[in-house]
Design a protein around this nucleic acid. Structure first.
Lengths: 340, 340
DNA sequence: CTGAAAGCGCTTACAG
DNA sequence: CTGAAAGCGCTTACAG
C-alpha cells in the first residue's frame, strides 16, 4: 500500500533513459546534454525523487557523516564547540552525529568501537575525565579513521589536535592581576589529573615566580569539578586566611563567580580589595556584578577549526601531514572584576 | 596497500562457512549451533571484523539514526533537550544527528529536504522563530517519516508533540506572586508571534483576571529575544513607572536576572519590595542573589520523552496511534527572589 | 543446523 | 552524449 519510494530505475523507465544517465544528469555531469538534464530534473521533481544516500554511501563506500564524542553536550563549552562543528560541517555538506561519554571510560570505549562501523567519515573527540590510556584511540587510528581531538586531548599519542594554550592564557591572566597591583594571589583550580587544569595551574605558578611572588599552598585550592558549590567552599577557605588574597585566578567562571559572591558578602570588595579573573568567558561573566574578567577560550571557533582540520584530512588524499596541532589564540576579556 | 576492510566473505572463507551462516552467528540467530557461533566470534575478533552497517542499513532499508532539528544547540535549553534525546537514543541503540536551523526558515526547509534521503529513521524538531507555515513538515510527513516536535511546535498540524503547559505554568507562577502579596505585577515576555511566549503571557494575564487584578500595558514588556540586555531596558522602563511593580513575572531567567539587578541597583529590594519569578530554571537561578524562583521546564526529560515517542513510532508497526501529544509536568522552584 | 542465490539502489569503468 | 553491466557487503526467503 504505502508506495515504494521512487528510485533511479523508476525515473529511467519514465524517461526512457538508462539509470546511469539519470544518475549523471542529477550530478550535473559534464557529458550529459543540457536538455536531458532539464528533463531529468523536472521528472525527478514531479515524482518526488530524492536519492537514496544510504545506497550511494554504500556504493562509494564513503559517507558524509562526522562523529563527535563529547563528555556532555549540555555543558556550555561543549555545546558551543559542537555548534561550531555543525556550522562548518553543514556548509561543507557533512552531517554531525553526537555521542556523550558522560565521562565514563567504559562508554567512551564502547563509542569508539561503534564508530568503526563504516558510518563515519571521521571523528572529533574530547576525552572524558576518567579516560585511562589511549588504547581505544589507537585501535580507531589503525582503521585509518580520520580523527581530531579538541580541548582535553590525549598526551603521548600523535594525532590532530585543536587546543588553546592553557599555560600561556593562565600566565597572562595572572600577570594581569599582578599588573593591577595584586601581590597575594590565590588560585581555585580543577582536578590536576586533567591536563588542561594542570596547565592552568602551572601558568599561574610560573607567572608568580617570574614576578618574584610566592605561592602558599593555603592559597591554592583544587576542586574536583570546578562547580559553583566547590567554588564557594574554596572561597570561604581563602577568606579565612590571616592574610586574605588580593587577587584570585580561577580555572573557570563558576568558581570565579562563587569567589566574587563569597568575598562581597563578607564585606571584601571586588575589585577594590580583591581582583578576580575567571576562565571561559561564559555568558554569566557579563551578568555577575561586578562583570567578570575572563579568558575567552574560543569554544565555537575551536569547533570550526576541528571540523575544518578533519574534513581536510577526509578529503585531501594527497595529504602528507601525519598530524597537526592547532593552537587557537585566546583573549583576556577585561571587565570590572579585575580593575583595581 | 591500506588493506581492504574485512568482510563477511573473508570470514566465511577463513572458516569454510557460508557468509549467511556468519551473519546469523553474529546475530545470535537461534538456528546456529553454539560451537559455530563461538568459532565465528573468535575469528571475527581475531580478524578485527566489524559489520559494515552502511551495507546492512542499505540491505534492510532501515537505519538506526535519528535526526534532530533545533534552532541553536548552544542555547542551554536545547542542549539539555538534545542531551536527553541522546541519552534515551543511545540506550535504545540509535544515533543522533543534529542540525541547526539558526532560526532561518530557509535553512529549516533545506534541512527537512535533506532528511528525506533515507539516512534517518525518524526526526525530532523544534521550530525556528521565523518559520512560516507547515508545508515543509507536511512534505516530510508524506514520506511516512516518523516525526516528533518539541517545545515550539507547529499549530494546525497534526503530529506527535512533547510540550509543557506554558499557559498553566505561567498562571501558576503568577498566582504564586499574588499569594505572596503582590498586587501590581508586571511581565517581561518574549515575541508574541511565538506560541509558547504568547501562552506564557496569556497565563499571566488570566491569573491576574481571576484574582481581580488589572494589567496595564505599561506593565507588560515584550522583547524580541528575551536577552539579558532587553531585560535591562524593560526593567528600567518598569522602574520609571509612577507606581513601581511589586512583582514581576518573566518569560525566561535572563530577563528575570536583569530585573533583579536593575531594581536592586536602584534601591528597590528583591524580594522585599519586588518579587521576581523567571522561567526555565537555568543554572544562573541558583547563582544570582537573591536566588531566583523559576519554572523548571524539564528540558532533559522533554528530550527523553521525544526520543521515546519517536522510537516507539519507528519500531511499533502495529501502532494505531495517529498522533500523540505529551505534556510534561512543570514545577515552580521557589527560591528567595519571590519570598516576600 | 547450514548453504546458495537473489537483490537492496546506487555509481562507474568501459564501450560505442 | 548515452547505455549495459558489474558489483559494493550485507540479509533473508527458500531449500535441504
Amino acid at each position: 500500500m504505502s508506495r515504494r519510494r521512487t528510485t533511479l530505475k523508476d525515473l529511467a523507465k519514465e524517461l526512457d533513459l538508462a539509470a546511469s544517465t539519470i544518475s549523471r544528469a542529477l550530478d550535473d555531469h559534464p557529458g550529459i546534454s543540457p536538455e536531458t538534464k532539464e528533463r531529468v530534473r523536472l521528472k525527478a521533481e514531479e515524482m518526488g525523487f530524492t536519492r537514496n544516500s544510504i545506497a550511494a554511501s554504500f556504493r562509494k563506500s564513503k559517507t558524509l557523516t562526522i562523529g563527535v564524542i563529547a563528555p556532555q553536550i549540555d555543558i556550555h563549552f561543549h555545546s558551543l564547540v559542537i555548534s561550531g562543528i555543525e556550522e562548518y560541517a553543514y556548509k561543507a555538506g557533512y552531517n554531525v552525529t553526537i555521542f556523550q561519554s558522560r565521562n565514563s571510560f567504559k562508554r567512551e570505549k564502547k563509542i569508539t568501537e561503534t564508530l568503526q562501523n563504516n558510518m563515519f567519515a571521521g571523528v572529533i573527540i574530547c576525552q572524558g575525565t576518567e579516560t585511562k590510556g589511549t588504547d581505544h584511540f589507537r585501535k580507531l587510528k589503525k582503521t585509518k579513521m580520520p580523527m581530531v581531538f579538541y580541548d582535553r586531548v590525549p598526551t603521548g599519542f600523535e594525532a590532530n589536535k585543536v587546543i588553546i594554550n592553557d599555560f600561556e592564557s593562565s600566565y597572562h591572566a595572572t600577570e594581569h592581576l599582578i599588573e593591577k597591583g595584586c601581590r597575594n594571589i590565590a588560585h581555585i583550580g580543577g582536578p590536576q589529573t586533567t591536563g588542561i587544569f594542570k596547565s592552568r595551574y602551572e601558568g599561574f605558578k610560573k607567572a608568580l615566580e617570574d614576578h618574584q611572588l610566592g605561592t602558599s599552598s593555603d592559597y591554592v585550592h583544587f576542586t574536583k569539578g570546578l562547580t559553583y558549590e566547590e567554588g564557594v567552599s574554596a572561597a570561604k577557605a581563602l577568606l579565612a586566611q590571616d592574610v586574605k588574597p588580593d587577587g584570585i585566578f580561577c580555572s573557570n567562571d563558576y568558581t570565579a563567580v562563587s569567589a566574587i559572591q563569597v568575598f562581597q558578602k563578607n564585606g571584601v570588595k571586588v575589585p577594590e580589595h580583591v581582583a578576580v579573573v575567571g576562565f571561559s568567558n561564559y555568558p554569566i561573566s557579563k551578568i555577575i556584578e561586578p562583570n567578570l574578567t575572563s579568558v575567552n577560550d574560543r569554544a565555537f571557533e575551536m569547533g570550526q577549526a576541528a571540523a575544518k582540520l578533519l574534513i581536510r584530512q577526509i578529503e585531501d588524499e594527497e595529504d602528507l601531514i601525519e598530524s597537526e596541532i592547532v593552537t587557537l589564540k585566546t583573549e583576556l576579556i577585561i571587565r570590572e572584576s579585575s580593575l583595581k
